[in-house]
């Protein structure tokens, strides 16, 4: 398979914030200290009592809806089929090109091929779709399109969206897709 784009531009990925050395006390070792306090605070607790504080708190504080960032996290580390680089590094996917609509249960992802005649565009779209099918709840409808004006045959690439099931029957294609997705696990 000859490569379309031998020398793509690689973008600096904003590194996940590194832990800073200094922390104000109320942020420092918080969980540990609290845990120590909690366990120590009630040495006489029957073990069944142990649960309450935990789950109550989590249920109240931790509830959140799926947002753009969460979707981006799922696809940013997918490998480009051509290069040993991720879609994020190549600016193929960006968080600002993702929308989540909870009312309609609709997620829309727009991606940008590295060059207008990229023959891999369909495959990239397929990878993103498969990854989202695997990692998002069923109730969402996922729409994946090529960014307007970035690909020669936009329409034909966008049309492929409904053919996932058929594509997944093709064992060679499935292998390529899995290859690209294998870099996306254990990263978030």
């Amino acid at each position: 398979m000859s490569k379309d784009n031998l020398n793509p531009t690689v973008f600096a990925v904003s590194a996940t914030p590194t832990l800073r050395r200094f922390k104000p006390l109320h942020l420092q070792n918080q969980t540990q200290a609290q845990k120590a306090f909690r366990l120590n605070a009630r040495p006489s607790i029957a073990s069944s009592d142990f649960t309450d504080s935990d789950s109550d708190k989590d249920n109240e504080e931790g509830i959140s809806f799926i947002d753009e960032q969460e979707v981006f996290q799922l696809i940013r580390n997918i490998n480009d089929p051509e290069h040993p680089l991720t879609l994020e590094q190549l600016h193929v996917v960006q968080q600002r090109h993702i929308t989540v609509d909870h009312k309609l249960s609709l997620i829309h992802v727009t991606f940008t091929p590295t060059i207008p005649h990229c023959s891999m565009a369909t495959l990239i779209g397929l990878c993103i779709r498969v990854q989202l099918l695997r990692c998002l709840p069923q109730r969402f409808k996922v729409d994946i399109t090529v960014e307007e004006g970035t690909h020669q045959s936009e329409k034909s690439v966008n049309k492929h969206k409904e053919r996932v099931a058929a594509a997944m029957e093709n064992s060679h294609l499935l292998e390529v897709v899995n290859q690209c997705l294998s870099t996306a696990v254990d990263k978030f």
């Binding site: 969460e70 996290q73 799922l74 990854q131 695997r134 990692c135 998002l136 899995n178 997705l181 294998s182 996306a184 696990v185 254990d186 978030f188």
Partner: peptide
Amino acid sequence: KEAGNARAKWFL
């Protein structure tokens, strides 16, 4: 997050 990750890994 963990569920998505675990599910993706089982698919692979």
